Computed example of a mutant assay.
Amino acid sequence: MTSVKSVRAPSVVLFVALVVLPLQQQESVPLTAPFQPPQGGTEPADEPPFGTAAASPPEIKVVTFNQGRFDPRILEPVRFWPRGHTAVIIDGEVHSFETDWQCGETEAEYKRANEWRGAWVQVLDLPASDAKQIRKDFARSCGTGAFLLTGVCTSSAGRLLQNALPDLTVTWAPMRLRAQLGRRGYVDRTYRWHREVWADHFVRCLRGENGDPPLLKAPIYRKEWPGRRVANA
């Protein structure tokens, strides 16, 4: 009997040690350890919510010229009848109604091609939904329309803008569209292209000098989908 008890006692002690000691260790360790930032590092910068950049409204500029392509220079400073030209720049891409809506030229290219005449550039201040609607309508217009049959440059631009800005009145005169946008409160800021050229024309007007019609300095481009551009004849 003595020999049996001496054999079983160590077995019982070993069993208790194997069960009880791990339980005590688990109770002393928390289930989730607190976050420890890396030593010597910096925390990551806050990132904008997903899709914020894509959801930003497009930048829309309305560019109006008092002088048309074949007008004498003397007429630009005193223009008050429906002549001249209007183009719309959306996110740096120009939409200009020539024989139809021609798209794809960059703002820098268009500005260089029109350095022979002054322009007013109105940067519009619109809700994001209106700006996106205008971008969609002008994108759909590329390659459509017919000059005089569907309108001229200013009236065609006015009709597309009118889809999002219903209180605009369609006009053929660039200076009237320019004035409307300002009166309706749609303009964030206005600046000029080639102010010195306009001033030179104004001086010529005061002197009674007419001068020859300006020549085009660069071809007008049209985007041929998907993305190829060709120069108009």
Rank of each mutant, 00 (worst) to 15 (best):
E59P: 00
E47Y: 08
S141N: 12
D130K: 14
E43L: 15
D46Y: 04
S11I: 14
L23W: 07
I89Y: 03
Q26N: 02
R117A: 06
T32C: 02
E47V: 14
R79S: 13
T171Q: 04
F50R: 12
A231S: 14
R183G: 01
N114P: 01
G118K: 06
S96H: 11
R178G: 00
W198D: 08
I74H: 04
E27R: 06
R192G: 02
C153I: 06
T86D: 03
P174I: 06
G92Y: 02
L124N: 11
A233R: 14
P10F: 09
C103L: 09
I89W: 02
A53S: 14
D71Y: 06
G118Q: 00
R189E: 09
V12D: 02
Q122N: 15
Q67N: 06
F202N: 01
L75N: 08
F15L: 15
P38S: 12
R222D: 01
E43W: 09
W172M: 10
V78S: 09
P174E: 07
G151Q: 05
M175T: 01
G185L: 01
A139F: 11
N210M: 14
W193F: 03
N114V: 05
V63Q: 05
E43I: 10
S96Q: 05
P10T: 04
C142K: 11
G84L: 07
M1I: 13
T99W: 07
P57W: 04
L23Y: 01
S11D: 02
P82S: 05
S156Y: 05
Y110W: 12
T106N: 11
A131L: 10
H95S: 07
E47Q: 15
I60E: 05
S11N: 05
E115M: 03
A157F: 04
P226S: 11
P30T: 04
R195P: 01
Q102S: 11
W116E: 01
T171S: 09
Q122F: 09
C205K: 08
W81I: 14
Y186H: 13
P82D: 04
T99N: 11
L31T: 02
E109L: 03
P214M: 11
Q162C: 02
G40C: 07
P82T: 05
V121G: 04
T2D: 14
L21H: 06
A146G: 05
G227T: 09
V230A: 12
V7K: 15
V94T: 07
L21D: 00
Q162G: 06
K5I: 15
F147E: 10
V123Q: 15
C103H: 05
T64D: 03
R195V: 00
V12A: 07
G145F: 08
G118L: 06
N66A: 14
G158W: 00
T86P: 05
T64M: 01
D167E: 12
R135V: 07
A199N: 10
N66Q: 10
F15K: 07
L126Y: 10
T86I: 03
P174M: 08
